[in-house]
Simulated assay, not measured.
Amino acid sequence: MADRQLQEPTRLVLTALADAPRHGYAIVQEVLAITGGRTKMLTGTLYTALDRLLQQGLIRIDHEEVVAGRLRRSFALTEPGRETLANETERLRAGVAEADRRLALGSPQPTLRTVGGTA
């Protein structure tokens, strides 16, 4: 997976779990915080991503508890998940650096304007 770019929901879930284990609702809230409120992860998207990431070994169940009669699972990154997120971060960083470089090279030059005739 290290040589493929991550889809945004996957990257956001891994990022949300990078500093601490979290349960589903806390991941949704963390994604909102990470994106400055621009991305609200839907429940179906979240749990599909969590199931896939569990199968891939990128996250693990940290602990389970019963809250208000319902099972609440908290998830944490595994070492392969941390490596995958670090690789994706470096890929994004390199892409941004290249975009910055090209923007700097392509900066429009100020043009001289003449008023009232030719020079």
Score class of each variant (00 low, 15 high):
His63Arg: 12
Arg82Trp: 06
Val66Asn: 00
Glu90Gln: 12
Leu77Phe: 05
Ala97His: 03
Glu90Cys: 06
Leu85Gly: 10
Val96Met: 11
Val67His: 03
Ala97Leu: 06
Gly95His: 02
His63Cys: 12
Leu92Met: 09
Val96Trp: 06
Asn87Arg: 08
Ala86Val: 07
Ala99Asn: 03
Val67Thr: 03
Ala76Glu: 14
Gly106Arg: 04
His63Met: 10
Asn87His: 08
Ala104Glu: 14
Arg70Val: 10
Ile61Asn: 00
Phe75Trp: 09
Glu79Cys: 01
Ala104Gln: 13
Arg73Ile: 07
Arg73Lys: 15
Arg101Asn: 01
Ala76Arg: 07
Leu105Asp: 15
Leu103Trp: 08
Arg93Gln: 09
Ala68Asn: 11
Leu105Asn: 14
Asp62Pro: 03
Glu64Leu: 00
Ala68Pro: 01
Asn87Met: 09
Ala76Gly: 11
Ser74Asp: 12
Arg72Gly: 00
Ala68Glu: 13
Glu88Cys: 02
Arg102Phe: 10
Asp100Tyr: 09
Ala104Asn: 05
Glu83Pro: 07
Ser74Met: 00
Arg102Thr: 07
Asp62Trp: 08
Arg60Trp: 01
Pro80Met: 05
Val67Trp: 05
Ala76Met: 02
Glu83Lys: 12
Asn87Thr: 13
Gly95Phe: 00
Arg101Glu: 11
Leu71Gln: 04
Glu88Ser: 10
Leu71Met: 09
Thr84Gly: 01
Val66Cys: 01
His63Asn: 13
Gly81Arg: 00
Arg93Met: 09
Ala97Val: 05
Glu88Pro: 08
Asp62Ser: 13
His63Tyr: 13
Arg101Cys: 02
Ala68Trp: 04
Ala97Arg: 08
Leu85Pro: 02
Ala104Thr: 06
Pro80Ile: 03
Asp62Thr: 07
Leu103Val: 11
Asp62Ala: 15
Arg60Leu: 14
Arg60Glu: 15
Leu92Gln: 11
Thr78Pro: 06
Thr84Val: 10
Arg70Gly: 06
Gly69Gln: 02
Leu77Asp: 02
Gly106Val: 00
Ala68Met: 08
Leu103Thr: 08
Arg60His: 12
Thr89Cys: 04
Ile61Thr: 13
His63Pro: 05
Ala76Trp: 05
Leu103Pro: 00
Glu98Leu: 15
Asp62Cys: 02
Arg102Tyr: 09
Gly95Lys: 04
Arg72Ala: 04
Leu92Ala: 14
Leu85Val: 06
Thr89Gly: 15
Gly81Gln: 02
Arg93Glu: 14
Ala68Tyr: 12
Gly69Arg: 08
Arg73Pro: 10
Arg70Asn: 14
Asn87Lys: 14
Ile61Met: 02
Glu79Ala: 07
Arg72Pro: 04
Glu98Cys: 02
Glu90Tyr: 00
Leu105Phe: 01
Ala104Gly: 02
Asp62Phe: 10
Glu98Ala: 13
Ala104Asp: 13
Arg102Leu: 15
Asn87Cys: 11
Asp100Asn: 08
Leu105Glu: 15
Arg102Ser: 11
Gly81Cys: 11
Leu71Val: 15
Glu65Ile: 07
Gly106Asn: 13
Ala68Lys: 12
Leu77Glu: 03
Arg82Val: 10
Glu83Met: 06
Glu98Thr: 03
Ala86Ile: 04
Asp100Arg: 09
Ala104Phe: 02
Arg73Met: 13
Arg91Asn: 14
Asp100Trp: 01
Val66Lys: 06
Ala76Cys: 01
Leu92Ile: 14
Leu103Asn: 07
Thr84Trp: 01
Glu88Thr: 03
Ala86Ser: 08
Thr78Tyr: 05
Leu77Cys: 04
Arg93Trp: 07
Val67Ile: 12
Leu103Phe: 14
Glu64Thr: 12
